[in-house]
Design a protein around this nucleic acid. Sequence first.
DNA 1: GCTTGAAACTGACGTTACGTCATTTTGTAT
DNA 2: ATACAAAATGACGTAACGTCAGTTTCAAGC
Lengths: 247, 247
Amino acid sequence: MLHIHKVSELTGVTVRTLRHYDQIGLLQSTSKTEGGHSLYSNGDLKKLQQIQFMKKIGFRLNEIKNMLNSSDWDWSDSLRNQLSYVKQEQENLNKMESALRELIHGMAIEDENNEIAIQKVMQLANSNKVLQQKYRRTLFKERELKLWKKVPNMTSDHPDTLEWIALIGQLKRFINEDPGCSNVQNIIRRMDEKRAETFGGETEFLDKLWDVRMSEKKSEQLGLYPIDQDVLEYMNAAYKIFIGKKG
Amino acid sequence: MLHIHKVSELTGVTVRTLRHYDQIGLLQSTSKTEGGHSLYSNGDLKKLQQIQFMKKIGFRLNEIKNMLNSSDWDWSDSLRNQLSYVKQEQENLNKMESALRELIHGMAIEDENNEIAIQKVMQLANSNKVLQQKYRRTLFKERELKLWKKVPNMTSDHPDTLEWIALIGQLKRFINEDPGCSNVQNIIRRMDEKRAETFGGETEFLDKLWDVRMSEKKSEQLGLYPIDQDVLEYMNAAYKIFIGKKG
DNA sequence: GCTTGAAACTGACGTTACGTCATTTTGTAT
DNA sequence: ATACAAAATGACGTAACGTCAGTTTCAAGC
């Protein structure tokens, strides 16, 4: 158990930053003294390390928060990604080195070649950004895939499937009535319970389904049960009311 | 001559960023259309490349502006610095690679070794910051040295020296009178002309001298003519009035 | 010369990830 | 018990753009 200053010293992250992470709920120390002083564990250090990497490749703090909070975060996958990122950056730096040498070499002479060399160096400086984006996408895709695997795949004969179809069917019958009425809200409550079972803390659930409908391709790819857009819209409206009542 | 979008495309810097640099006077295109559209030259691209590097090692935009504006900026020095920075970063990444491998290797086992490995990785992630700071200092020191070489070194027998001594001597005689009076202001004007000759656009001149007096060590190191602090204070006051009248 | 759609400009306000105080609490060494 | 370093709390500040909305300019075809 380390206090905040020690963590800052060990990791090079400023105290203010740690407190900021605490505030926004990104990294809260596992334990606190009765007076409210933070005490960080080894697990917290691990998490901090992850945060640092994910920041480096361009994620924003709230994105990082979502990903780390999601129950299925794979620390080992992420480490392998880090390694592979490091190796790629090494290659980039090698290219950068030769480009710089070329530029320095041709510096005395002012000509066309020089312009090209300059552009080369600049693009290499950016290829680092490109690399970051690439790994951002990689991490994101991995996570998305894991999420999608949990979405009830309507073509498979997963036991959940029938229940989801039944629930959606029930909803359809009320599509011309008030989404706030008790019948509908009961169905929605059941759906929400099912959602909680299946997705744990994930709250983006409906947004996901929505996205699927928005792009036909995705739902083809994933072989999802096709839900009519009007039903989805209705469901969305009803769900919002449900959340409003709950919160 | 390239318009802004082309530059953005070639370099990977966003249009908005280029415009921002334009606004703050960091990088203004050498020519514009009569309608006010920017047209960037190859020199501008060079400058942009410098800016990118200096940003990468942690300078702030206004610092970069100062350094690049200063007449004695050495593009070739800076490139060599970039190269040396790149090579150091390569080494860092190598260390990072083995640290990561160590962590991944020992991941299955949860023990003390693991904690140490985590800290190692985190510190390496920061060693990048340390490196940046180092090169920031390097660049800064080089520039400071060049500035100091232009400060009239009072122990040498540079032709300027005598005139500076004379001016300061004259100023001393008025030290008990109003720093705004015409006699004093005339001396100050002459000093300012001399300053402009010697330092070009550098406006930090008096601040520099001030700093020297503040730390005895510096003035020893540089072998500057010792100016009494009260004279400096008086000079400072008179100079401020002078600037006020001028502006 | 005139139209026209794309690109550029000109503000203005928003945002992210902290930095920087200033003040109050809490931990701990004596 | 007291004193003094560390930590918390809160509030405001900031750098470097992003984003949006409205206007102007450019180049290209008719």
